[in-house]
């Protein structure tokens, strides 16, 4: 019997994905904090990001990440005032975080939907590409 994966991104799946992504962000930041060299950078990074998790061809789950005073908080939905808007397949974001995909690979490569792996644009506060360039330092894990 051949089973075909038909995704219905129902509310339960959205909630689980949000929970998983939240755990990824908090555990990655905690892992980076194990290296004292990262403390200053993690504490000083300030950003308000709208992140679109492109889960299916026609479905994006919007979450927001606020980095403020060393705290990183993930919320559901979009922020009205934000610095950057990013859209990526969460799977590609994971490979970015574990270092398998470089920043260039994310910016230039295509995802399984035929779109750029990382689509980005400035926010209501400006272009803020400096913050974009800082993201690998914040979100990419260090290999032990």
């Amino acid at each position: 019997m051949i089973l075909i994966w038909v995704i219905a991104v129902d509310e339960v799946s959205q909630e689980i994905l949000f929970f998983t992504f939240n755990a990824v962000i908090s555990d990655v930041i905690a892992d980076k904090r194990k290296n004292p060299k990262n403390t200053k950078m993690l504490d000083e990074f300030q950003a308000r990001l709208n992140i679109g998790l492109h889960v299916e061809e026609d479905f994006i789950l919007w979450v927001n990440l606020i980095a403020e005073n060393g705290k990183y908080m993930l919320g559901r939905g979009k922020l009205d005032e934000y610095d950057l808007e990013l859209i990526a397949d969460p799977e590609d974001l994971m490979y970015f975080t574990n270092g398998e995909y470089s920043t260039m690979n994310m910016m230039l490569g295509k995802n399984r939907f035929g779109k750029r792996r990382l689509r980005y644009k400035g926010g209501t506060t400006g272009r803020n590409f400096g913050k974009l360039l800082q993201l690998p330092k914040i979100l990419v894990l260090e290999r032990n």
Binding site: I7, V9, V12, S13, Q14, E15, I16, L17, F19, T20, F21, A23, V24, D27, V28, A30, D31, V55, E56, D89, P90, E91, M94, Y95, T97, N98, E100, L141, R143, N144
Partner: peptide
């Protein structure tokens, strides 16, 4: 199995940073 996780079809409890290093 990783896509299942990142589409909300599966879930995992445990340190995500460690498991991300071992995909």
């Amino acid at each position: 199995p990783v896509r299942a996780l990142l589409s909300g079809k599966a879930k995992i409890q445990g340190d995500m940073a460690k498991v991300l290093k071992a995909t």
